[in-house]
Design a protein around this nucleic acid. Structure first.
Lengths: 200, 200
DNA sequence: TCGCTGTGATACCGATCGGTAACATTTGAG
DNA sequence: CTCAAATGTTACCGATCGGTATCACAGCGA
């Protein structure tokens, strides 16, 4: 009785985007919200409006899907950073802008901290395919902040950068236990003070 | 053929401590090392030299075992703090002492960061029995640091305390992705500088 | 119209998950 | 010694895990 036509009529919009993207979208949301180990591939396939078989046609394994989830997210965060670069030509304003982005993220009730740090906690196995993605992304970010501190004219750019880096990481993870109104709430002001004292 | 006597001869020492403690010991090590969701109750029972049935005679569920694991660990950390209090009467030295304890922990190759922060990442469910243990412990530690900053004569003790708190949390989580030689390596020196600048 | 490719659907695999029932064994206090 | 409580052992439960085989079908270029 033309069951297929009925289905096509019910969910036409979601069928437009290719399944690989839908799977990555669903995986991203579920992995971030509930945790990587807490989400099964069946749940991802169903949330993506497809099935497990199609999922495994596009991704070798769940571990590879996790790695791809983080790779795509890293690209998106790089884009955010580029936009910040365009918006604020001044390196000091760029640093403060990044503090604000993180601060806004912490205030967001949907926030669950840094997806990369969370993945590092959930995947301690040294050879997990997501591990190198995590390390590469964090190392890149540290380098970016360091260069920004250098451009801003800091006397000890590496020191300032690492201090800001630790502050940001701390605020993101701290908000997961003590909420957005705990110590994490002071991230932006604290960061600004530190930047000002280093760039006199 | 006195199979029992043979067993008693083979593993006499581990049979001494009551099973509840052995189970908690095994669970603590496995949960911390591999992650909570990555460890099954069967593995815990086996590592404890007992079986699943005995485990469930002492703990209502795996979730309750997780909560108890964190409760006991919180007690142990409180003891460490008390010893620090006894060792350093001066509040400023106590703060620095705590920084050093965390710094040593980060350097330890077995370290996997803060067990409470990790649990918060792995257990986002709002009503998990471990959640209140996590929040209580973190809130208590924040309060302790704040009071210490107050006793040390800081002009803005809450601000200094939260800055140190974020720094410590950041260093612990950062070491999980960038290693002990990354930004986390600067924790002690950075913390000392901040303390000195606030307690002039 | 043919045939190929990508997708969907379903059933299945062995393994493991958290949790329990039933029964044998050990142990220690009375 | 006796008895009861604690522990060990084994087998089992339904559910879910990551991953695969099979087949039907839809779309599309030639």
């Amino acid at each position: 009785m033309s069951k297929s036509s009925t289905k096509a009529a019910i969910e036409p919009a979601e069928g437009r985007t290719p399944p690989r993207e839908r799977i990555l979208d669903a995986a991203s949301e579920l992995f971030y919200r509930h945790g990587i180990r807490a989400v099964g591939v069946d749940a991802i396939a169903e949330a993506a409006g497809t099935n497990k078989m199609t999922l495994y046609r596009h991704f070798e394994s769940k571990d590879e899907l996790v790695a791809e989830y983080l790779r795509r997210l890293a690209g998106e965060l790089d884009a955010v950073w580029c936009e910040l670069e365009r918006k604020y030509p001044d390196p000091r304003q760029q640093l403060i802008g990044w503090l604000r982005v993180v601060g806004d993220n912490i205030v967001n009730p949907k926030s669950r901290g840094c997806a990369f740090a969370n993945a590092a906690v959930e995947l301690p196995e040294k050879h997990h395919p997501a591990r190198c993605v995590i390390e590469k992304h964090k190392a890149g970010k540290r380098l970016q902040i360091t260069q920004l501190c250098k451009k801003a004219g800091a006397a000890k750019p590496e020191l300032l950068a690492d201090e800001l880096f630790l502050l940001i990481e701390g605020a993101l993870v701290c908000a997961q236990s003590l909420g957005a109104n705990g110590p994490a709430a002071r991230l932006v002001r604290l960061g600004e003070t530190i930047i000002n004292s280093h760039l006199k």
